[in-house]
Computed example of a mutant assay.
Amino acid sequence: MATPPQTLEPQCSEVHNDESELEELEKLEADVKQMAQKILEYRATLPDQLKNTLASILASQRPVVATHLEDWSEPGISGDPDPDAAGLAESGKGTSLAKEDQDTAEKTQLLKQKISSNVSAMPVVLKRMKECMSRIDKLDSCNGFIHPAFKRKRTS
């Protein structure tokens, strides 16, 4: 009579193991579905994001003709016939313009460095994207084949 309780305990642990395996498989299936959804979203949005980023980078590299047209206006516009008198009154503006130009130059240099590093990293990113796209296409070509690890074990 001591034998039946011993046989019940392994059966309970087997049932518990089966349940934990099912829960783990369900969790893995949910993770796979979530990753597939993210991949689909990335495939839909990434080309537009790359296009917009490239357009903004190219736009930022265009030379700026004159950013401070109001500050460099002709003396006749202000109504002051003597440009030297206006220059003395606005000497504080001149130093602030020089500081702004220096800040702009630093920001431009930093932007150029970032663009350069991004461009140098682009081949690696493109290679990884192509590999991911080929894996996705490979999964799509399986025509509904489900790997045995993701099949549910039926308990009867």
Rank of each mutant, 00 (worst) to 15 (best):
T7A: 11
L8G: 08
E9P: 01
E9I: 04
E9G: 05
P10E: 10
E14M: 04
H16F: 02
D18V: 00
E21T: 02
E23M: 09
E24P: 02
L28H: 12
E29K: 11
E29P: 00
A30E: 08
A30V: 01
A30C: 06
A30S: 08
D31S: 07
D31P: 01
V32Y: 05
V32K: 13
Q34H: 10
Q37L: 03
Q37K: 13
K38I: 07
I39E: 12
I39Y: 11
L40P: 00
Y42N: 13
A44W: 09
T45E: 15
P47T: 06
L50G: 07
K51F: 03
L54D: 09
S56L: 09
A59I: 01
A59G: 06
P63G: 09
P63A: 08
V64R: 07
V65A: 14
V65G: 07
V65F: 10
H68D: 15
H68M: 11
H68A: 14
L69A: 11
E70W: 01
D71H: 04
S73M: 09
S73C: 04
I77A: 07
S78N: 03
S78F: 05
D80G: 01
P81Y: 02
D82V: 01
P83W: 06
P83E: 08
P83L: 02
G87H: 12
G87V: 11
L88Y: 09
A89Y: 11
A89T: 14
E90W: 08
E90G: 08
S91H: 14
G92T: 10
G94P: 00
T95V: 06
Q102S: 07
D103Y: 01
D103Q: 09
T104L: 06
A105E: 02
A105P: 00
E106W: 07
E106V: 05
K107N: 05
Q109F: 00
Q109S: 08
K112A: 06
Q113R: 04
Q113E: 02
Q113K: 01
S116G: 07
S120C: 04
P123H: 14
V124K: 15
R128P: 04
M129R: 14
E131L: 08
M133C: 13
M133I: 12
S134D: 15
S134F: 13
R135L: 12
I136L: 15
I136C: 12
K138T: 14
K138F: 07
L139F: 13
D140T: 05
C142I: 05
C142R: 15
F145K: 10
F145E: 07
I146L: 12
I146E: 13
H147Q: 04
H147C: 02
K151T: 03
R152G: 01
